[in-house]
Design a protein around this nucleic acid. Sequence first.
DNA 1: CAGTATCCTACGTGATACTG
DNA 2: CAGTATCACGTAGGATACTG
Lengths: 149, 149
Amino acid sequence: MKLKSFKGMNCSLAQTLNIVGERWSLLIIRDISFGTTHFDEIQKSLGVARNMLSTRLKQLTEAGILRKEADDAGRSQYKLTDKGWDLMPVLLSMTHWGDKHVPDEAGDRVVFVDQKTGRPIQPMGIHDADGSRINYYDIKPEFGPALRR
Amino acid sequence: MKLKSFKGMNCSLAQTLNIVGERWSLLIIRDISFGTTHFDEIQKSLGVARNMLSTRLKQLTEAGILRKEADDAGRSQYKLTDKGWDLMPVLLSMTHWGDKHVPDEAGDRVVFVDQKTGRPIQPMGIHDADGSRINYYDIKPEFGPALRR
DNA sequence: CAGTATCCTACGTGATACTG
DNA sequence: CAGTATCACGTAGGATACTG
């Protein structure tokens, strides 16, 4: 009676959830994207159990999202691969949603800014082929070849 | 030895995960956004256990993401609230990531298109305050008031 | 059709001690 | 510091039957 894997679901969302859908995965990825790259650092930062962290790091490395390497001092550290950095839109979308819908009375928590200008980036949103921002009710799903049989 | 809640974490990402981080939640939300709004429809579509679906629907409704109402025939159905629709960027980001990194040999699965033009939307990405697309290495996090103490 | 009600299991998670 | 090794636990998740 194993957990049902989403692998057979032929749905990109399910595939993604299958890889980064565990409770801690995205938080670990966020920490590493912030430069918290050592085991103990991450462990303290998140308060996650050591064995869980170990398991997740291994799994994410196998999935090609993280890369394990030695830092200048010879200590192990984890870095995001390009595949891992590609998750930034996911992290940012969730962060923006939390900012808006589960705010802190004290104000913003983390703001992502453009390094050049220092101005905050736009909240994550949908853009049409020309780059104009559009609304969720302006789009519709269409089934591609993989779903037409 | 309960599961550690992310509530105290003062992190928007954790807050979001606390609400939609369960394995099935985002898949249920996607189904409903596609117009699969009845209990049995969702259940068959996802193959999720009925009691799990029941629990999740209740939880998401309480969280203000879903709204339960009767359709024209008097049957119960679930709809996304505005708060729920605000999760579209999350769903789309994950879907696009899956498209790219866990592709199907048969080609695309679901493509989201602009209703007006029929052209696919842009893959979800980061945009600066002017609306220009920028890269993940062009941004940096800054700590807001809620984290400065 | 839209759930509830049971019963069951294994996985995700946690605490802590230990090792090179 | 970077894990591994145990041991324990609860809950998410699953199968199925039942009800209005």
